[in-house]
Computed example of a mutant assay.
Amino acid sequence: MSDDHRHVQEFFTARAADWDSRFPDDGPAYATAVAELGLREGNRVLDAGCGTGRALPPLRAAVGASGIVVGADLTWAMLEAAVRAGRCREGLLMLADVGALPLVSGLFDAVFAAGLIAHLPHPSENLRELRRVVRPGGTLALFHPIGRAALAARQGRRITPDDLRAEPNLRSLLSRSGWRMTSYVDEDARFLALAVRED
Rank of each mutant, 00 (worst) to 15 (best):
residue 153 A to N: 04
residue 139 T to D: 06
residue 91 G to Y: 03
residue 23 F to C: 00
residue 184 Y to Q: 00
residue 137 G to Q: 07
residue 150 A to E: 07
residue 6 R to N: 08
residue 22 R to Q: 10
residue 171 R to V: 04
residue 110 A to R: 07
residue 52 T to A: 05
residue 96 A to P: 02
residue 116 L to I: 12
residue 164 L to R: 15
residue 75 T to W: 07
residue 55 A to I: 07
residue 116 L to H: 12
residue 25 D to Q: 03
residue 20 D to T: 03
residue 178 G to Y: 01
residue 90 E to H: 07
residue 108 F to N: 01
residue 190 R to N: 00
residue 105 S to C: 10
residue 18 D to Q: 09
residue 124 S to A: 15
residue 55 A to G: 00
residue 74 L to T: 03
residue 99 G to D: 06
residue 101 L to W: 05
residue 77 A to F: 03
residue 58 P to H: 07
residue 127 L to F: 15
residue 168 P to F: 07
residue 61 A to G: 14
residue 112 F to I: 07
residue 163 D to V: 03
residue 79 L to C: 00
residue 55 A to T: 01
residue 168 P to N: 11
residue 62 A to T: 11
residue 181 M to N: 02
residue 198 E to C: 12
residue 155 Q to N: 14
residue 33 A to Y: 09
residue 67 G to I: 10
residue 39 L to N: 01
residue 70 V to H: 05
residue 135 R to V: 14
residue 139 T to M: 08
residue 48 A to G: 02
residue 149 A to G: 09
residue 13 T to C: 07
residue 102 P to Q: 10
residue 73 D to W: 11
residue 140 L to N: 13
residue 197 R to W: 05
residue 9 Q to K: 15
residue 74 L to A: 08
residue 166 A to H: 13
residue 177 S to G: 13
residue 27 G to K: 03
residue 42 G to D: 05
residue 198 E to Q: 14
residue 121 P to E: 13
residue 78 M to T: 04
residue 194 L to W: 04
residue 58 P to D: 00
residue 123 P to S: 09
residue 194 L to T: 08
residue 30 Y to F: 15
residue 153 A to E: 07
residue 86 G to A: 02
residue 63 V to N: 09
residue 55 A to N: 04
residue 162 D to Y: 06
residue 135 R to N: 03
residue 151 L to Y: 10
residue 116 L to Q: 13
residue 54 R to N: 02
residue 6 R to S: 13
